[in-house]
Design a protein around this nucleic acid. Structure first.
Lengths: 116, 116
DNA sequence: GCAATAGTTAGCCATATGGCTAACTTTAGC
DNA sequence: GCTAAAGTTAGCCATATGGCTAACTATTGC
Protein backbone atom coordinates (compact mmCIF):
# COMPACT_ATOMS: atom_id res chain seq x y z
CA UNK A 1 0.00 0.00 0.00
CA UNK A 2 0.96 3.70 -0.23
CA UNK A 3 2.67 2.94 -3.51
CA UNK A 4 4.14 6.38 -4.30
CA UNK A 5 5.45 5.27 -7.67
CA UNK A 6 6.70 1.82 -6.99
CA UNK A 7 9.31 0.16 -9.20
CA UNK A 8 6.56 -2.37 -9.89
CA UNK A 9 4.84 0.31 -11.96
CA UNK A 10 7.71 0.42 -14.39
CA UNK A 11 8.10 -3.34 -14.47
CA UNK A 12 4.47 -4.10 -15.25
CA UNK A 13 4.21 -1.23 -17.70
CA UNK A 14 7.31 -2.53 -19.45
CA UNK A 15 5.79 -6.00 -19.73
CA UNK A 16 2.55 -4.59 -21.10
CA UNK A 17 3.87 -4.49 -24.64
CA UNK A 18 4.37 -7.48 -26.93
CA UNK A 19 7.60 -6.16 -28.39
CA UNK A 20 9.10 -5.77 -24.96
CA UNK A 21 7.88 -9.15 -23.76
CA UNK A 22 9.45 -10.68 -26.86
CA UNK A 23 12.73 -8.96 -26.01
CA UNK A 24 12.60 -10.33 -22.47
CA UNK A 25 11.86 -13.77 -23.89
CA UNK A 26 14.77 -13.54 -26.27
CA UNK A 27 17.13 -12.40 -23.56
CA UNK A 28 16.06 -15.41 -21.52
CA UNK A 29 18.15 -17.46 -23.93
CA UNK A 30 21.22 -15.28 -23.46
CA UNK A 31 22.66 -11.79 -23.85
CA UNK A 32 22.53 -10.04 -27.21
CA UNK A 33 23.51 -6.85 -28.98
CA UNK A 34 20.97 -4.18 -29.87
CA UNK A 35 21.18 -5.10 -33.52
CA UNK A 36 20.54 -8.78 -32.89
CA UNK A 37 17.61 -7.95 -30.65
CA UNK A 38 16.12 -5.53 -33.14
CA UNK A 39 16.42 -7.84 -36.16
CA UNK A 40 13.06 -9.66 -35.78
CA UNK A 41 11.07 -6.43 -35.57
CA UNK A 42 9.79 -4.36 -38.49
CA UNK A 43 10.53 -1.14 -36.70
CA UNK A 44 12.99 1.69 -37.08
CA UNK A 45 15.96 1.45 -34.74
CA UNK A 46 15.14 4.59 -32.72
CA UNK A 47 11.66 3.22 -32.02
CA UNK A 48 13.18 -0.05 -30.94
CA UNK A 49 15.68 1.75 -28.71
CA UNK A 50 12.79 3.35 -26.86
CA UNK A 51 11.55 -0.11 -25.93
CA UNK A 52 15.00 -1.02 -24.69
CA UNK A 53 15.00 2.23 -22.75
CA UNK A 54 11.73 1.33 -21.04
CA UNK A 55 13.01 -2.13 -20.20
CA UNK A 56 16.25 -0.80 -18.81
CA UNK A 57 14.53 1.94 -16.80
CA UNK A 58 12.33 -0.72 -15.26
CA UNK A 59 15.37 -2.75 -14.28
CA UNK A 60 14.27 -5.78 -16.29
CA UNK A 61 17.39 -5.57 -18.41
CA UNK A 62 20.89 -4.24 -18.01
CA UNK A 63 23.20 -3.15 -20.80
CA UNK A 64 26.73 -2.00 -21.33
CA UNK A 65 28.58 -0.73 -24.31
CA UNK A 66 31.94 -2.02 -25.44
CA UNK A 67 33.31 -0.29 -28.47
CA UNK A 68 30.37 0.41 -30.72
CA UNK A 69 28.33 -2.55 -29.54
CA UNK A 70 25.84 -2.39 -26.72
CA UNK A 71 25.13 -5.76 -25.15
CA UNK A 72 21.86 -6.33 -23.29
CA UNK A 73 21.20 -8.88 -20.65
CA UNK A 74 18.25 -9.96 -18.55
CA UNK A 75 18.04 -9.00 -14.87
CA UNK A 76 16.05 -11.93 -13.51
CA UNK A 77 15.83 -10.48 -10.00
CA UNK A 78 13.53 -7.74 -11.28
CA UNK A 79 11.25 -10.19 -13.03
CA UNK A 80 11.21 -11.97 -9.73
CA UNK A 81 9.81 -8.98 -7.82
CA UNK A 82 6.83 -8.87 -10.15
CA UNK A 83 6.32 -12.60 -9.87
CA UNK A 84 6.44 -12.25 -6.10
CA UNK A 85 3.78 -9.55 -6.07
CA UNK A 86 1.48 -11.78 -8.07
CA UNK A 87 2.16 -14.80 -5.91
CA UNK A 88 1.24 -12.71 -2.87
CA UNK A 89 -2.04 -11.71 -4.45
CA UNK A 90 -2.84 -15.28 -5.31
CA UNK A 91 -1.94 -16.40 -1.79
CA UNK A 92 -4.29 -13.80 -0.36
CA UNK A 93 -7.09 -14.83 -2.63
CA UNK A 94 -6.50 -18.51 -2.04
CA UNK A 95 -6.41 -18.28 1.74
CA UNK A 96 -9.64 -16.35 1.62
CA UNK A 97 -11.33 -18.83 -0.67
CA UNK A 98 -10.05 -21.64 1.55
CA UNK A 99 -11.74 -20.01 4.54
CA UNK A 100 -14.84 -19.61 2.43
CA UNK A 101 -14.78 -23.28 1.45
CA UNK A 102 -14.31 -24.25 5.08
CA UNK A 103 -17.23 -22.09 6.07
CA UNK A 104 -19.49 -23.58 3.42
CA UNK A 105 -18.32 -26.99 4.60
CA UNK A 106 -19.22 -26.13 8.19
CA UNK A 107 -22.68 -25.06 7.06
CA UNK A 108 -23.18 -28.40 5.38
CA UNK A 109 -22.04 -30.21 8.52
CA UNK A 110 -24.44 -28.19 10.67
CA UNK A 111 -27.32 -28.85 8.31
CA UNK A 112 -26.58 -32.54 8.53
CA UNK A 113 -26.53 -32.69 12.36
CA UNK A 114 -29.84 -30.81 12.29
CA UNK A 115 -31.19 -33.78 10.37
CA UNK A 116 -32.30 -31.49 7.51
CA UNK B 1 5.74 -14.80 -30.51
CA UNK B 2 3.59 -13.01 -33.12
CA UNK B 3 1.70 -11.34 -30.28
CA UNK B 4 -0.92 -9.40 -32.31
CA UNK B 5 -2.30 -7.72 -29.22
CA UNK B 6 -2.27 -10.44 -26.63
CA UNK B 7 -4.57 -10.33 -23.62
CA UNK B 8 -1.32 -10.22 -21.63
CA UNK B 9 -0.86 -6.67 -22.90
CA UNK B 10 -3.99 -5.54 -21.13
CA UNK B 11 -3.22 -7.50 -17.99
CA UNK B 12 0.29 -6.16 -17.52
CA UNK B 13 -0.73 -2.63 -18.47
CA UNK B 14 -3.53 -2.84 -15.93
CA UNK B 15 -1.09 -3.91 -13.23
CA UNK B 16 1.30 -1.10 -14.11
CA UNK B 17 -0.56 1.39 -11.95
CA UNK B 18 -0.48 1.56 -8.16
CA UNK B 19 -4.17 2.43 -7.86
CA UNK B 20 -5.14 -0.60 -9.89
CA UNK B 21 -2.77 -2.92 -8.05
CA UNK B 22 -4.28 -1.68 -4.79
CA UNK B 23 -7.74 -2.48 -6.13
CA UNK B 24 -6.63 -5.99 -7.06
CA UNK B 25 -5.12 -6.36 -3.61
CA UNK B 26 -8.30 -5.20 -1.96
CA UNK B 27 -10.43 -7.55 -4.04
CA UNK B 28 -8.18 -10.39 -2.95
CA UNK B 29 -9.92 -10.14 0.41
CA UNK B 30 -13.38 -10.34 -1.12
CA UNK B 31 -15.87 -8.69 -3.47
CA UNK B 32 -16.82 -5.04 -2.99
CA UNK B 33 -19.00 -2.30 -4.40
CA UNK B 34 -17.57 0.55 -6.47
CA UNK B 35 -18.08 2.98 -3.62
CA UNK B 36 -16.26 0.78 -1.11
CA UNK B 37 -13.40 0.30 -3.53
CA UNK B 38 -13.14 3.99 -4.31
CA UNK B 39 -13.21 5.15 -0.68
CA UNK B 40 -9.44 4.94 0.05
CA UNK B 41 -8.51 7.01 -2.99
CA UNK B 42 -8.40 10.79 -3.21
CA UNK B 43 -9.78 10.77 -6.71
CA UNK B 44 -13.04 11.77 -8.37
CA UNK B 45 -15.37 8.86 -9.06
CA UNK B 46 -15.21 9.09 -12.86
CA UNK B 47 -11.41 8.88 -12.70
CA UNK B 48 -11.68 5.89 -10.44
CA UNK B 49 -14.20 4.26 -12.75
CA UNK B 50 -11.67 4.45 -15.55
CA UNK B 51 -9.32 2.32 -13.50
CA UNK B 52 -12.07 -0.20 -12.91
CA UNK B 53 -12.75 -0.12 -16.65
CA UNK B 54 -9.12 -0.94 -17.42
CA UNK B 55 -9.14 -3.78 -14.90
CA UNK B 56 -12.35 -5.22 -16.25
CA UNK B 57 -11.25 -4.90 -19.88
CA UNK B 58 -8.11 -6.83 -18.96
CA UNK B 59 -10.19 -9.58 -17.39
CA UNK B 60 -8.57 -9.16 -13.98
CA UNK B 61 -11.89 -8.30 -12.43
CA UNK B 62 -15.53 -9.02 -13.17
CA UNK B 63 -18.50 -6.92 -12.08
CA UNK B 64 -22.23 -6.97 -12.17
CA UNK B 65 -24.86 -4.49 -11.18
CA UNK B 66 -27.80 -5.25 -8.94
CA UNK B 67 -30.10 -2.34 -8.38
CA UNK B 68 -27.93 0.74 -8.15
CA UNK B 69 -24.91 -1.11 -6.79
CA UNK B 70 -22.16 -2.57 -8.93
CA UNK B 71 -20.21 -5.30 -7.22
CA UNK B 72 -16.68 -6.11 -8.33
CA UNK B 73 -14.84 -9.34 -7.88
CA UNK B 74 -11.39 -10.67 -8.70
CA UNK B 75 -10.90 -13.10 -11.59
CA UNK B 76 -7.91 -15.07 -10.32
CA UNK B 77 -7.58 -17.09 -13.52
CA UNK B 78 -6.45 -13.97 -15.38
CA UNK B 79 -3.86 -13.10 -12.76
CA UNK B 80 -2.73 -16.65 -13.23
CA UNK B 81 -2.02 -16.24 -16.95
CA UNK B 82 0.36 -13.39 -16.19
CA UNK B 83 2.03 -15.37 -13.42
CA UNK B 84 2.42 -18.26 -15.83
CA UNK B 85 4.09 -16.10 -18.44
CA UNK B 86 6.60 -14.90 -15.89
CA UNK B 87 7.23 -18.39 -14.57
CA UNK B 88 7.97 -19.50 -18.14
CA UNK B 89 10.48 -16.72 -18.60
CA UNK B 90 12.18 -17.60 -15.36
CA UNK B 91 12.25 -21.27 -16.31
CA UNK B 92 13.90 -20.40 -19.60
CA UNK B 93 16.46 -18.23 -17.95
CA UNK B 94 17.16 -20.76 -15.21
CA UNK B 95 17.58 -23.71 -17.53
CA UNK B 96 20.01 -21.66 -19.55
CA UNK B 97 22.00 -20.55 -16.54
CA UNK B 98 22.02 -24.15 -15.32
CA UNK B 99 23.58 -25.22 -18.60
CA UNK B 100 26.03 -22.38 -18.28
CA UNK B 101 26.96 -23.46 -14.77
CA UNK B 102 27.37 -27.04 -15.97
CA UNK B 103 29.62 -25.83 -18.77
CA UNK B 104 31.77 -23.78 -16.44
CA UNK B 105 31.92 -26.80 -14.17
CA UNK B 106 33.07 -28.99 -17.06
CA UNK B 107 35.81 -26.50 -17.88
CA UNK B 108 37.08 -26.70 -14.32
CA UNK B 109 37.03 -30.49 -14.46
CA UNK B 110 38.97 -30.49 -17.72
CA UNK B 111 41.54 -28.09 -16.35
CA UNK B 112 42.01 -30.38 -13.39
CA UNK B 113 42.57 -33.56 -15.46
CA UNK B 114 45.08 -31.59 -17.55
CA UNK B 115 47.03 -31.14 -14.37
CA UNK B 116 46.83 -27.33 -14.75
C1' DG C 1 42.29 7.42 -43.38
C1' DC C 2 37.82 6.22 -45.43
C1' DA C 3 33.76 3.69 -45.60
C1' DA C 4 30.72 0.91 -43.42
C1' DT C 5 28.64 -0.51 -39.05
C1' DA C 6 26.22 0.26 -34.70
C1' DG C 7 24.04 3.30 -32.03
C1' DT C 8 22.36 7.87 -30.65
C1' DT C 9 20.03 12.45 -30.66
C1' DA C 10 16.56 15.60 -32.04
C1' DG C 11 12.26 16.54 -33.37
C1' DC C 12 7.75 15.53 -35.36
C1' DC C 13 3.14 13.27 -35.10
C1' DA C 14 -1.12 10.61 -33.63
C1' DT C 15 -3.20 8.33 -30.10
C1' DA C 16 -3.75 6.72 -25.27
C1' DT C 17 -3.78 7.64 -20.30
C1' DG C 18 -5.09 9.63 -16.12
C1' DG C 19 -6.98 13.27 -14.08
C1' DC C 20 -10.93 16.82 -13.63
C1' DT C 21 -15.98 19.03 -13.59
C1' DA C 22 -20.70 19.18 -14.73
C1' DA C 23 -24.80 17.14 -15.77
C1' DC C 24 -27.56 13.01 -16.09
C1' DT C 25 -29.87 8.32 -14.77
C1' DT C 26 -31.43 4.93 -11.95
C1' DT C 27 -32.63 2.85 -7.49
C1' DA C 28 -33.74 2.90 -2.58
C1' DG C 29 -35.77 4.90 1.42
C1' DC C 30 -38.76 7.67 3.96
C1' DG D 1 -43.32 10.89 -5.01
C1' DC D 2 -39.20 13.39 -3.58
C1' DT D 3 -34.67 13.21 -2.03
C1' DA D 4 -30.44 11.10 -1.45
C1' DA D 5 -27.24 7.59 -2.97
C1' DA D 6 -24.59 5.15 -6.47
C1' DG D 7 -23.08 5.13 -10.75
C1' DT D 8 -22.65 6.84 -15.55
C1' DT D 9 -21.84 9.88 -19.60
C1' DA D 10 -19.75 13.67 -21.91
C1' DG D 11 -16.22 16.54 -22.61
C1' DC D 12 -11.98 19.00 -21.36
C1' DC D 13 -6.95 19.06 -20.40
C1' DA D 14 -1.92 17.84 -19.79
C1' DT D 15 1.31 14.46 -20.31
C1' DA D 16 3.09 9.94 -21.86
C1' DT D 17 3.65 6.40 -25.43
C1' DG D 18 4.95 4.43 -29.64
C1' DG D 19 5.93 5.22 -34.05
C1' DC D 20 8.62 7.86 -37.80
C1' DT D 21 12.69 10.48 -40.47
C1' DA D 22 16.90 12.88 -40.72
C1' DA D 23 21.17 13.88 -39.19
C1' DC D 24 24.92 12.92 -36.17
C1' DT D 25 28.86 10.23 -33.44
C1' DA D 26 31.97 6.85 -32.58
C1' DT D 27 34.27 2.25 -33.77
C1' DT D 28 36.00 -1.14 -36.72
C1' DG D 29 38.11 -3.10 -40.68
C1' DC D 30 40.39 -2.82 -44.86
Amino acid sequence: MANYCSPLDEVFLALGDPTRRAIVSRLGTGAASVKELAAPFAMALPSFMKHLGVLERSGLIRSKKQGRIRTCELEPATLRTAETWMAEQRAMWESRSDRLAAYVESLHAKEKTNGH
